[in-house]
Design a protein around this nucleic acid. Sequence first.
DNA 1: CTAGCGTCA
DNA 2: CTCCTGACGCTAG
Length: 668
Amino acid sequence: VCDASRLSQEERALVLRETAQASVIVLTMVYQDGTAQLNAEQKSCPPVSGVLVLLKSELDAMESEGCSAGLPGSEGSGCKVIFLKLEQRPAWAQQGYRQDRFSKEMLLCILGSAQDVICFKAKDLLCTALQYFGKEISWKQVALCRILDPQIAAWLLDPADTASCFWDLVAKRCKTRAAVKPCAGAREFEQQPNVSGSLLVLYRLMMDLRASLQEQGLWKLFCSVELRLTTVLAVMEIHRIHVDKDALEKTSKILGMKLKQLEQEAHQAAGQQFLVSSSSQLRVVLFEKLRLHERCENKKLPKTVLRQQQSTSEATLMQLQDLHPLPKIILEYRQVHKIKSAYVDGILSCMISPFYNPKWGNTSSAVTGPITSKKPNIQAIPRQSIQIIKKQYVQGKEPEVITIHPRSMFISEEGWTFLAADFSQVELRLLAHLSSDPELLRVFQEPLAAGDVFISLASQWKGLPEGKLKPEDREQAKRIVYSVVYGAGKERLSEILGLTAEQAGQFVDSFLQKYKQVRAFTQKTIQQCQDQGCVVSIMGRRRHLPHILSPDWTLRNQAERQAVNFVVQGSAADLCKMAMIRIFSHIASSPTLTARLIAQIHDELLFEVEDSQVEEFAGVVQTTMESLQHIDCFGVHLKVPLRVMLSSGKSWGSLAELARPRSLPHRL
DNA sequence: CTAGCGTCA
DNA sequence: CTCCTGACGCTAG
């Protein structure tokens, strides 16, 4: 291993030349505590110290047969390992300027081209590289990089096996590994600080995974979707979203006051002081002091499983709330507390000054293929506002109703606007395509299909004109449709509809009668899953469902529903990923467009766009997304058009619908 | 009905 | 005292 900082000018120039010509480049980040990305999973990411680069000038002979693996040392002929120090130098330091430059130059040389690079957690590396580049280098300069990530490859091969660490993957996926080194020795090997050897193992692992992907016909999906997506996600992740911190802190305070107030009310109702948040203290008050359980012997109260104590769970409190004012207060306390901790303090705690950036993941145990957001989950921030009644202590003053709207805390930067693009009714459109149900196809192919399907269904269902419907009605219609097509039982549906099970059953029957081919599609999918053990999405993503042949009735039925659901939901995820990639590439290759993807909420893409570019970019987004009806390289030709709804605004909480820029009423 | 994550009991 | 699990909350179709 040679340290780049010790190289002379000439040697550096040589290294850069070698990098550009290398047939294989393998990378791993090294942390300041001496561990690398390849070490066992760390809980918290320690600060980065640098990047190790392995340059391989020639491919192994007889690579495909894997017999050249040899020992890590012998394989390494024609290899060079270079350490690039990445230090965040304080602005005042002049000393290391040149070395700083070289690390950047080298990284840009690797990431700025389209040559294949291998890295274990590619997204993390890309993020730190982009942050290291800072403003000097635009993200557009790395937009074409191709980093093969074994973790994602393995996830694609089997989404169900939970993301394991590097050495577990080696043990599981490296066919050639067994010959080189018995699996039992993996741990031992890991202990050795032989990082260059590890890089070669990483290389072999990726080669073996590539072979498996190719065997299973997943290579194209890997290259043109998952691989591309890591760059998109990295660029999205380093972008900071502006959050109205003051407003958040203010609502946090208000909620805190509300909690205090509820606490006092609780004490008053209980006739004593106690810790409201403690279930054990609450138990003492409820059952030993007030002895509420004695007053409702006709109902059975749940007990804690462990010690058979009286439970203080929500179900219990619900039953007790008519007997005494206390349970109701506790219930409200818990509700407010949850809102505060999840959506106000939760966001606050993840912020760095007035900004916020969630972590985006592609593999993390998501079995159907969608990307997910974490810390906190921006995809689960409430859509509608929450009302809290704040009582006034001042006599004669009306109680003040305050509304909390977490989404409106997210605001665009000065001079920029949020643009949201929503695939409308993707899953239903996909279902129409997949099932070829004539009725369903007609709904979307008709020229009048510009309207909203769920609104028209809701108006049919409620017998009201479309203009008189509330947003809740649409939501309900949507839930009903999806419930039915995914195989909800009449019991479950009756809960949603608020009808008797019998009426719900009739509803299901008439629905499936009208859309006959939907059931045919369901059965075809289950059949296919039984035959092949797995089910496949529109772009070839797979999900194995071993329980599909289980003798256990409940397990088998669940697997059957999951099979059907996967085909539709997984395909929708494919389309959304493709949309992200296409739009990303479009921006990257445009000299003027500056729009940034901020978040993906399932079928909705949220961008931040310069005010002056909103109109132009909206057009780009819409045409790009709607053109995904046909994806030639995957043989995707949807029988129904895709429709995108656009909205924009200065805050995520208040987006106004945008007129369709390319205002064609319909196509086809 | 199906997917996620985060917060508790 | 610190884990872990299952229910339920939110989201999205």
